[in-house]
Design a protein around this nucleic acid. Structure first.
Lengths: 217, 217
DNA sequence: TAGATTGTTAATCGATTAACAATC
DNA sequence: TAGATTGTTAATCGATTAACAATC
């Protein structure tokens, strides 16, 4: 409970830990060391220990970490111990794919409303949810206690959607549109920017010789 | 042409620059300063200047950067001046969404082949491409000179697909499956890990008061 | 007890930012 | 010339890694 500022890099790794620990748990493995974790997740064991130690003493010296206990603790840290309701705007291919992808549920994040600016899509169904028009956004966000918004609209409309989300009271946004969005203070925006990931991949793509690093320039 | 090692953080920003410069270009804006770039992209202007200066002197003191010239240069740096062929494995919702999403084309990355382990999908069409079975992967990668692979299969199969990609000669992989993949040296793997982005968002979601940072712990 | 592994401090490494001379 | 903005060095900040005492 010390008021130490946790860096973003640390927070970003927590879901990675959680995910692998879940795998261990279903495989009935009950103890894991930072060593093993590091090997599987391609991370330095010291880093893993340090990351976890920011939040408490979860391990046992000489033994390692109890898998299920650590899962419980990380879920608490990430505030995934109670369900977060999510709204999605943009029912193109990607938006529909995400709606159908209900992995979230086991992680306590659940898409509970879907919107599209295209009025002609109003009323169509996606994975048991009815597509709603944008003018219902604010009311729905408040009624369903939605705290997270997902944006899967074209780049040109993304900031507008973000603004509407924020005005509705959403406090976190996951943006898939290839633009940098601005948020009001107190609202957190994460970017799922796979086109950037893909293009930056190209940079590393010349070295026929096997050198992993971009050279030449 | 100095042999200076460019950091990943720098390379990851280049597509962000490129994307915004493209917007400026279509708006007929021909000059931009690091100042303006920084404001729009939420980055420090000094950082932008430094990033670009790793690769050459692209600006003019007292003036700024020529938009179209900078676009050309960044595309060269990222090796997007010639088309890279891409294969995708996994034709679930997400895979199909990505196939239809042909933004890549203008960036010289083109999905030219699609595969699925499910034999029953063999022969079906996605955006003008015929879904092929996995046993054709290697041959196709070599024949079509495919250098990048996209993985959109379930987590449990992702490493296997990655291994097949690597054995086929692919040198870059964009992985959408929620697992950490291991690569042979000389093969670059980028992770498009949106579930992790979503879960880490939850961490920042409590502060009703508007403080942006995770506190309490 | 002997062996293992944590939690944590100190050392290192890398990335961001500030500042400013150079110059358009 | 005066104003603006780059390229670059130096200063700062932050994140990773090594090392080891504590202890199970």
């Amino acid at each position: 409970m010390k008021p130490i500022k946790i860096s973003e890099a640390v927070v970003r790794r927590l879901p990675i830990y959680l995910r692998f620990l879940n795998e261990l748990s279903v495989s009935n493995i009950h103890t894991v060391s930072s060593q093993e974790l590091g090997e599987k997740l391609d991370l330095n064991p010291a880093q893993i220990r340090k990351d976890l130690a920011y939040f408490g003493e979860f391990g046992r010296k000489g033994v390692g970490y109890n898998v299920d206990y650590l899962i419980e603790k990380i879920r608490q840290i990430l505030k995934l111990d109670k369900t977060l309701n999510v709204a999605l705007v943009g029912t193109g291919n990607l938006g529909r794919a995400l709606c159908n992808y209900n992995t979230y549920i086991k992680d306590n994040m659940k898409i509970v409303a879907v919107f599209d600016a295209d009025e002609s899509k109003k009323g169509s169904m996606i994975n048991r949810l009815t597509v709603q028009p944008m003018n219902e956004l604010k009311e729905t966000v408040q009624q369903l206690d939605i705290s997270v918004g997902i944006i899967t609209v074209p780049a040109a409309e993304a900031q507008n959607v973000a603004d509407q989300f924020i005005a509705s009271g959403v406090r976190g946004i996951l943006n898939f549109a290839p633009v940098v969005l601005k948020a009001a203070p107190g609202v957190r925006i994460h970017h799922a920017d796979f086109t950037a990931e893909l293009l930056s991949l190209a940079y590393y793509m010349d070295s026929i010789n096997g050198s992993n690093e971009g050279d030449e320039f």
